[in-house]
């Protein structure tokens, strides 16, 4: 009985090739950005410009993961903003602690 009940009553829908193609395209973009970061790590001189580019590229990757893989872009606007707006506070935390860190640097050296 149990096993018979397990037989699917759900209708399997055919693959949507366009959707699957989009997933692979996003994956290719993520990979390309990572490879670019890798090349930059070895060819560019270390400094603020490089770090800035790294952080921009990382946030760009995060955007793809959240919007495409986690489908946050497909959710309704109130849900989208209730996740994204609180993250604004992190910008302040970043500024405050980066400043704090550089002040400690000045004190020590």
């Amino acid at each position: 009985m149990e096993i018979q009940q397990n037989k699917s009553t759900l209708e399997v829908q055919p693959r949507n090739d366009e959707k699957i193609k989009k997933i692979w395209k996003t994956a290719a973009i993520l990979l390309a950005i990572t490879v670019a970061e890798f090349i930059m790590a070895f060819t560019m001189p270390r400094g603020l410009l490089l770090y800035f580019l790294f952080i921009v590229l990382t946030i760009w990757k995060a955007r793809y993961i959240m919007l495409e893989f986690m489908h946050l872009g497909d959710e309704v606007k109130p849900l989208f903003y209730s996740i994204m707006v609180p993250l604004v506070f992190l910008i302040w935390l970043l500024i405050a602690l980066a400043k704090e860190g550089s002040e400690i640097f000045m004190m020590r050296w």
């Binding site: 699917s8 399997v12 055919p14 959707k19 994956a27 990572t34």
Partner: peptide
Amino acid sequence: VGIMTFILISSSVTMVLAVEAGHRNDR
């Protein structure tokens, strides 16, 4: 660490493919 990153991103891709298959009820 580059290989590790590649492995984790790949597993994220296969995960999103599993989610897509779930939408189609394709066990």
